[in-house]
């Protein structure tokens, strides 16, 4: 039995799954009393993130591994972010926020490529550990070097 049929019996729409709480009410806050345990997904979005994760699984053909549709979506997001970056650069009124905005956009793009195109999200934790450790060390040296150059100068 494939993943879709196993989880949804093949008859639940993606939209319903994304926005329904426990499959029957839109945007419902679960009814609770002080005595009851905290219900799962207790918030107005009814487990939106959890369900969004399921959508990603569906897009990846239920293999828990990205598929072509998934890749096209990530590429479209990367393209759109690049367009926003260039647009931001061309608007003089937004120039005072240029540096932080570009850093945030590039971090998002970086994370998307590493997590999904490089499969780090789906791969062995050892690879993430190696790469992230090197990133942290690199950023640390980067920051120390910039701080030192800011306070002491570089003999220019």
């Amino acid at each position: 039995m494939d993943w879709w049929a196993l989880n949804y019996g093949g008859n639940m729409s993606l939209l319903k799954d994304l926005f329904f709480y426990q499959g029957n009410k839109w945007w419902k806050i679960p009814e609770t009393t002080e005595l009851s345990e905290n219900p799962k997904n207790e918030h107005p979005f009814g487990g939106f993130l959890e369900k969004a994760k399921n959508i990603l699984l569906i897009l990846s053909s239920g293999k828990g591994h990205a598929g072509p549709v998934y890749y096209w979506i990530i590429a479209a997001i990367l393209g759109i972010i690049t367009l926003i970056e260039v647009w931001w650069f061309t608007v003089p009124e937004l120039r005072y926020m240029l540096a932080p905005a570009m850093l945030i956009f590039s971090i998002i793009k970086f994370a998307l490529v590493v997590a999904f195109f490089m499969h780090l999200r789906f791969d062995h934790k050892m690879f993430s550990t190696i790469f992230i450790t090197c990133m942290v060390v690199g950023i640390l040296f980067f920051s120390v070097f910039l701080l030192l150059s800011a306070f002491h100068g570089l003999g220019t």
Partner: peptide, 15 residues
């Protein structure tokens, strides 16, 4: 190589 360029494009060019 692509992610390095993402950083270079933001820092060396746009900023």
């Amino acid at each position: 190589v692509d992610i390095v360029w993402i950083v270079i494009f933001a820092l060396l060019y746009l900023i």
